[in-house]
Protein backbone atom coordinates (compact mmCIF):
# COMPACT_ATOMS: atom_id res chain seq x y z
CA UNK A 1 0.00 0.00 0.00
CA UNK A 2 2.74 2.45 0.97
CA UNK A 3 4.59 1.44 -2.15
CA UNK A 4 1.60 2.25 -4.34
CA UNK A 5 1.24 5.62 -2.63
CA UNK A 6 4.90 6.54 -3.12
CA UNK A 7 4.69 5.59 -6.77
CA UNK A 8 1.62 7.75 -7.17
CA UNK A 9 3.39 10.60 -5.42
CA UNK A 10 6.47 10.27 -7.63
CA UNK A 11 4.26 10.37 -10.72
CA UNK A 12 2.51 13.46 -9.38
CA UNK A 13 5.78 15.25 -8.77
CA UNK A 14 7.64 14.11 -11.86
CA UNK A 15 4.65 13.88 -14.16
CA UNK A 16 4.76 16.35 -17.02
CA UNK A 17 0.96 16.62 -16.92
CA UNK A 18 0.30 20.36 -16.57
CA UNK A 19 3.68 22.04 -16.50
CA UNK A 20 5.34 23.76 -19.47
CA UNK A 21 8.44 21.62 -19.20
CA UNK A 22 6.77 18.88 -21.22
CA UNK A 23 8.99 17.90 -24.09
CA UNK A 24 8.03 16.44 -27.43
CA UNK A 25 9.86 13.38 -28.71
CA UNK A 26 11.51 15.83 -31.11
CA UNK A 27 13.65 17.18 -28.24
CA UNK A 28 15.07 13.73 -27.59
CA UNK A 29 16.36 13.24 -31.13
CA UNK A 30 19.78 13.95 -32.55
CA UNK A 31 20.30 17.08 -34.68
CA UNK A 32 20.38 15.14 -37.97
CA UNK A 33 17.02 13.47 -37.34
CA UNK A 34 15.63 16.84 -36.21
CA UNK A 35 16.71 18.56 -39.40
CA UNK A 36 15.23 15.72 -41.43
CA UNK A 37 11.88 16.53 -39.82
CA UNK A 38 12.07 20.30 -40.12
CA UNK A 39 13.14 20.36 -43.78
CA UNK A 40 10.05 19.61 -45.86
CA UNK A 41 12.34 18.63 -48.70
CA UNK A 42 14.04 15.94 -46.64
CA UNK A 43 11.10 14.77 -44.51
CA UNK A 44 9.83 11.49 -46.01
CA UNK A 45 6.48 12.20 -44.35
CA UNK A 46 5.96 14.82 -47.06
CA UNK A 47 5.80 11.99 -49.61
CA UNK A 48 2.76 10.70 -47.73
CA UNK A 49 1.32 14.22 -47.93
CA UNK A 50 1.80 14.19 -51.72
CA UNK A 51 0.02 10.84 -51.97
CA UNK A 52 -2.70 12.14 -49.64
CA UNK A 53 -3.31 15.18 -51.84
CA UNK A 54 -3.82 12.91 -54.83
CA UNK A 55 -6.20 10.61 -52.94
CA UNK A 56 -8.15 13.55 -51.53
CA UNK A 57 -9.32 14.33 -55.05
CA UNK A 58 -10.01 10.76 -56.16
CA UNK A 59 -13.67 9.68 -56.24
CA UNK A 60 -14.24 6.43 -54.35
CA UNK A 61 -17.06 3.97 -53.69
CA UNK A 62 -20.59 3.86 -55.06
CA UNK A 63 -21.09 7.57 -54.33
CA UNK A 64 -18.31 8.38 -56.82
CA UNK A 65 -17.48 11.35 -54.62
CA UNK A 66 -14.07 12.42 -53.41
CA UNK A 67 -13.14 13.97 -50.08
CA UNK A 68 -12.82 17.22 -52.03
CA UNK A 69 -16.46 17.02 -53.20
CA UNK A 70 -17.78 17.37 -49.66
CA UNK A 71 -14.94 19.03 -47.77
CA UNK A 72 -13.29 21.32 -50.35
CA UNK A 73 -9.55 21.91 -50.08
CA UNK A 74 -7.92 20.22 -47.07
CA UNK A 75 -6.48 23.61 -45.97
CA UNK A 76 -10.01 24.80 -45.15
CA UNK A 77 -12.26 22.51 -43.12
CA UNK A 78 -9.46 20.21 -41.98
CA UNK A 79 -7.51 22.92 -40.20
CA UNK A 80 -7.15 22.03 -36.53
CA UNK A 81 -9.13 18.78 -36.83
CA UNK A 82 -6.24 16.46 -35.98
CA UNK A 83 -5.35 18.64 -32.97
CA UNK A 84 -8.82 17.94 -31.54
CA UNK A 85 -9.23 14.18 -32.12
CA UNK A 86 -10.24 11.55 -30.94
CA UNK A 87 -13.84 12.74 -31.08
CA UNK A 88 -17.20 11.14 -30.37
CA UNK A 89 -19.23 10.08 -33.38
CA UNK A 90 -22.94 10.42 -32.75
CA UNK A 91 -24.12 7.82 -35.27
CA UNK A 92 -21.52 5.15 -34.49
CA UNK A 93 -22.05 5.84 -30.76
CA UNK A 94 -18.33 5.59 -30.09
CA UNK A 95 -15.11 7.61 -29.94
CA UNK A 96 -12.99 7.50 -33.10
CA UNK A 97 -9.51 8.66 -34.03
CA UNK A 98 -8.74 10.30 -37.37
CA UNK A 99 -8.18 6.97 -39.15
CA UNK A 100 -11.50 5.72 -37.84
CA UNK A 101 -13.12 8.99 -38.89
CA UNK A 102 -11.78 8.71 -42.46
CA UNK A 103 -13.10 5.16 -42.66
CA UNK A 104 -16.50 6.36 -41.45
CA UNK A 105 -16.53 8.82 -44.35
CA UNK A 106 -15.58 6.01 -46.70
CA UNK A 107 -18.31 3.65 -45.54
CA UNK A 108 -21.02 6.16 -44.61
CA UNK A 109 -20.58 8.88 -47.20
CA UNK A 110 -18.59 7.41 -50.08
CA UNK A 111 -20.11 3.93 -49.76
CA UNK A 112 -16.69 2.38 -50.17
CA UNK A 113 -14.96 -0.37 -48.18
CA UNK A 114 -13.04 0.77 -45.13
CA UNK A 115 -9.25 0.78 -45.57
CA UNK A 116 -7.30 -1.60 -43.33
CA UNK A 117 -5.20 -0.16 -40.49
CA UNK A 118 -1.72 0.97 -41.56
CA UNK A 119 -2.78 0.84 -45.20
CA UNK A 120 -0.56 3.31 -47.07
CA UNK A 121 -3.54 5.19 -48.59
CA UNK A 122 -5.22 5.57 -45.20
CA UNK A 123 -1.98 6.81 -43.62
CA UNK A 124 -1.51 9.24 -46.52
CA UNK A 125 -4.97 10.78 -46.01
CA UNK A 126 -4.50 10.96 -42.24
CA UNK A 127 -1.07 12.56 -42.71
CA UNK A 128 -2.55 15.17 -45.06
CA UNK A 129 -5.23 15.94 -42.45
CA UNK A 130 -2.59 16.00 -39.69
CA UNK A 131 -0.48 18.49 -41.64
CA UNK A 132 -3.39 20.96 -41.53
CA UNK A 133 -2.82 21.15 -37.75
CA UNK A 134 0.96 21.48 -37.85
CA UNK A 135 2.03 24.36 -35.64
CA UNK A 136 -1.32 24.51 -33.83
CA UNK A 137 -1.71 23.63 -30.14
CA UNK A 138 -3.38 20.34 -29.22
CA UNK A 139 -6.93 21.20 -28.17
CA UNK A 140 -8.82 18.11 -27.01
CA UNK A 141 -12.52 18.01 -27.82
CA UNK A 142 -14.50 19.21 -24.75
CA UNK A 143 -17.35 16.73 -25.50
CA UNK A 144 -18.25 15.24 -22.07
CA UNK A 145 -18.81 11.83 -23.65
CA UNK A 146 -15.02 11.61 -24.03
CA UNK A 147 -14.34 11.97 -20.30
CA UNK A 148 -14.92 8.29 -19.66
CA UNK A 149 -12.63 7.34 -22.57
CA UNK A 150 -9.83 9.50 -21.19
CA UNK A 151 -10.30 8.05 -17.72
CA UNK A 152 -9.98 4.55 -19.16
CA UNK A 153 -6.91 5.60 -21.11
CA UNK A 154 -5.34 7.01 -17.96
CA UNK A 155 -6.06 3.78 -16.11
CA UNK A 156 -4.34 1.76 -18.85
CA UNK A 157 -1.45 4.21 -18.78
CA UNK A 158 -0.87 3.50 -15.13
CA UNK A 159 -1.42 -0.26 -15.15
CA UNK A 160 1.56 -2.61 -15.18
CA UNK A 161 1.37 -5.07 -18.06
CA UNK A 162 3.38 -7.79 -19.76
CA UNK A 163 6.10 -10.17 -18.65
CA UNK A 164 8.23 -7.16 -17.74
CA UNK A 165 5.35 -5.91 -15.60
CA UNK A 166 5.80 -2.24 -16.45
CA UNK A 167 3.27 0.54 -16.93
CA UNK A 168 3.51 3.30 -19.51
CA UNK A 169 3.97 5.75 -16.62
CA UNK A 170 6.97 3.90 -15.26
CA UNK A 171 8.86 4.49 -18.47
CA UNK A 172 7.39 7.71 -19.79
CA UNK A 173 6.91 9.67 -16.53
CA UNK A 174 9.36 8.15 -14.06
CA UNK A 175 12.17 7.41 -16.49
CA UNK A 176 11.63 9.91 -19.28
CA UNK A 177 15.01 11.29 -20.31
CA UNK A 178 16.68 8.01 -19.34
CA UNK A 179 17.64 5.31 -21.79
CA UNK A 180 16.29 1.93 -22.75
CA UNK A 181 19.16 0.16 -24.43
CA UNK A 182 20.41 2.79 -26.83
CA UNK A 183 17.10 4.61 -27.19
CA UNK A 184 16.25 7.69 -25.13
CA UNK A 185 12.88 7.31 -23.39
CA UNK A 186 10.65 10.22 -24.49
CA UNK A 187 7.61 11.53 -22.65
CA UNK A 188 5.13 9.79 -24.99
CA UNK A 189 3.45 12.88 -26.42
CA UNK A 190 1.41 12.12 -29.56
CA UNK A 191 2.31 15.41 -31.24
CA UNK A 192 3.58 14.12 -34.56
CA UNK A 193 1.32 11.32 -35.80
CA UNK A 194 1.28 9.71 -38.28
CA UNK A 195 5.08 9.64 -38.05
CA UNK A 196 7.80 8.54 -40.42
CA UNK A 197 9.82 6.17 -38.27
CA UNK A 198 13.32 5.38 -39.45
CA UNK A 199 13.15 1.92 -37.89
CA UNK A 200 9.99 1.13 -39.87
CA UNK A 201 11.25 2.90 -43.01
CA UNK A 202 7.62 3.86 -43.42
CA UNK A 203 4.78 5.95 -42.07
CA UNK A 204 2.90 4.55 -39.10
CA UNK A 205 0.00 5.51 -36.87
CA UNK A 206 -0.03 6.15 -33.13
CA UNK A 207 -1.64 2.73 -32.75
CA UNK A 208 1.36 1.10 -34.41
CA UNK A 209 3.66 3.01 -32.05
CA UNK A 210 1.63 1.89 -29.03
CA UNK A 211 1.75 -1.73 -30.20
CA UNK A 212 5.53 -1.39 -30.25
CA UNK A 213 5.50 -0.32 -26.60
CA UNK A 214 3.21 -3.24 -25.68
CA UNK A 215 5.44 -5.82 -27.36
CA UNK A 216 8.42 -4.03 -25.78
CA UNK A 217 7.21 -5.08 -22.34
CA UNK A 218 6.19 -8.49 -23.75
CA UNK A 219 2.52 -7.89 -23.51
CA UNK A 220 0.16 -9.15 -26.21
CA UNK A 221 -0.98 -6.02 -28.07
CA UNK A 222 -4.71 -5.52 -28.60
CA UNK A 223 -5.83 -5.92 -32.23
CA UNK A 224 -5.70 -2.76 -34.35
CA UNK A 225 -8.78 -0.59 -33.92
CA UNK A 226 -9.53 -1.76 -30.36
CA UNK A 227 -11.29 0.65 -28.03
CA UNK A 228 -8.27 0.44 -25.72
CA UNK A 229 -6.13 2.31 -28.25
CA UNK A 230 -8.74 5.00 -28.76
CA UNK A 231 -8.91 5.43 -24.97
CA UNK A 232 -5.11 5.69 -24.72
CA UNK A 233 -5.00 8.10 -27.66
CA UNK A 234 -7.67 10.27 -26.02
CA UNK A 235 -5.73 10.30 -22.74
CA UNK A 236 -2.37 11.01 -24.40
CA UNK A 237 -3.86 13.93 -26.35
CA UNK A 238 -5.35 15.34 -23.11
CA UNK A 239 -1.99 14.90 -21.39
CA UNK A 240 -0.34 16.81 -24.26
CA UNK A 241 -2.99 19.55 -24.44
CA UNK A 242 -1.44 22.86 -25.51
CA UNK A 243 1.66 21.24 -27.03
CA UNK A 244 2.36 21.98 -30.67
CA UNK A 245 1.34 19.56 -33.42
CA UNK A 246 4.23 18.56 -35.68
CA UNK A 247 2.72 16.07 -38.15
CA UNK A 248 4.42 14.58 -40.08
CA UNK A 249 7.12 13.99 -37.45
CA UNK A 250 10.23 11.88 -38.01
CA UNK A 251 11.20 9.52 -35.19
CA UNK A 252 14.12 7.11 -34.85
Amino acid sequence: MTKVCTTALVILMAGPAQSDDRRSGFEFMGPTTQSMQTDDMANPGMLAVLAGERLWNEPAGLSEQSCQTCHGDPEGEMRGVAARYPAFDEVAGTAVDISGRVNLCRTRHQRADPLPHENADLLALVTLIGLQSRGLPIQPDPDPRLTEWRARGEAYYETRVGQLNLSCAQCHDENAGGHLGGAPIPEAHPTGYPIYRLEWQAMGSLQRRLRGCFTGVRSEPWPYGSDGYIALEAYLMQRAAGMTMETPAVRP
Partner: peptide, 9 residues
Protein backbone atom coordinates in the same frame (compact mmCIF):
# COMPACT_ATOMS: atom_id res chain seq x y z
CA UNK B 1 19.84 20.11 -55.40
CA UNK B 2 17.66 17.83 -53.29
CA UNK B 3 15.79 14.76 -54.41
CA UNK B 4 13.49 12.59 -52.28
CA UNK B 5 11.95 9.56 -54.01
CA UNK B 6 9.13 7.45 -52.65
CA UNK B 7 10.48 3.93 -53.06
CA UNK B 8 10.48 0.75 -50.92
CA UNK B 9 14.16 -0.12 -51.70
Amino acid sequence: IKLLISHPM
